[in-house]
Simulated scan of single mutants.
Amino acid sequence: MSFPGLTYGPLGDHCAHLCVDMQKLFAEPSEWATPWITRVLPKIVGLVERKAEQTIFTRFLPAERPGQGAGTWKRYYERWASMTIEKVGPEMAELLPPLSSLCPPALVIDKHVYSPWPEGRLQAVLAERRIDTLVVTGGETDVCVLATVLGAIDIGYRVVLVTDALCSSSDATHDALMTVYHQRFAQQVETVEMEAVLLAWS
């Protein structure tokens, strides 16, 4: 049986769904709102409902107060003082409600930068589960998803990027990154729609 778009065949027992930053922080009326987030949410919910035990959510946690953070992150949280935990409240860091209700069995891993890799917990969990393939959804295509994908490539994971389950606040850079994934990372990133993932992941 062939799986259109999946160059390297079906998704097996050593596959995990890594869902990036589908949080209240990035939904209306937040200053960081990603307009498409509600468009891709139903597709992500559908996958999590089928694969909750194989799903890991990352959550981006802003600084507690303005000016915190190392290096340029200090400047970042001066610019985005309105988005610190002190200002928005800790509940804004929570997953969107249809997803939070699926935890557990889905797992949540917090991070404080764009990439989920430097803090180490994600890779430890994946190694314990003997994961070699990551199905990636979430946002933003051109920021945290990008950091997630590049780190996964460096570690050596097979990366399956679900094109209709990604969102960004910028159409232009979303489209540009999809071109990069197709043209520059085709050996290491397979780009497919959700339907192909559901068919290929028994």
Rank of each mutant, 00 (worst) to 15 (best):
R65C: 07
R65S: 10
G67A: 00
G69E: 10
E78V: 12
T84N: 05
I85N: 07
K87T: 15
V88D: 07
G89H: 01
E91S: 09
E94N: 14
E94A: 13
E94H: 14
L95D: 07
L96A: 05
P98A: 09
L99M: 12
S100L: 08
C103G: 06
P104A: 00
A106Q: 11
K111M: 08
Y114C: 06
P116Y: 02
W117G: 12
G120S: 11
G120D: 12
Q123K: 10
A124P: 11
A124W: 09
E128K: 15
R129Y: 08
R129D: 14
R130H: 14
T133K: 00
T133I: 04
L134T: 13
V135I: 14
G138T: 04
G139H: 08
E140R: 07
T141A: 08
T141P: 15
V143T: 15
V143I: 14
V145E: 05
L146Q: 11
L146H: 09
A147C: 10
T148V: 10
I153N: 06
D154T: 11
Y157T: 06
V159D: 10
V162S: 10
V162Y: 08
T163N: 08
D164A: 01
L166V: 07
L166Y: 02
L166P: 08
C167Y: 07
S169Q: 15
S170I: 10
H174C: 07
H174E: 12
A176F: 06
M178F: 01
M178G: 01
H182R: 14
A186L: 09
Q187N: 11
Q187C: 05
Q187I: 02
E190F: 00
T191L: 15
E193V: 15
E195Y: 02
V197K: 03
L198S: 09
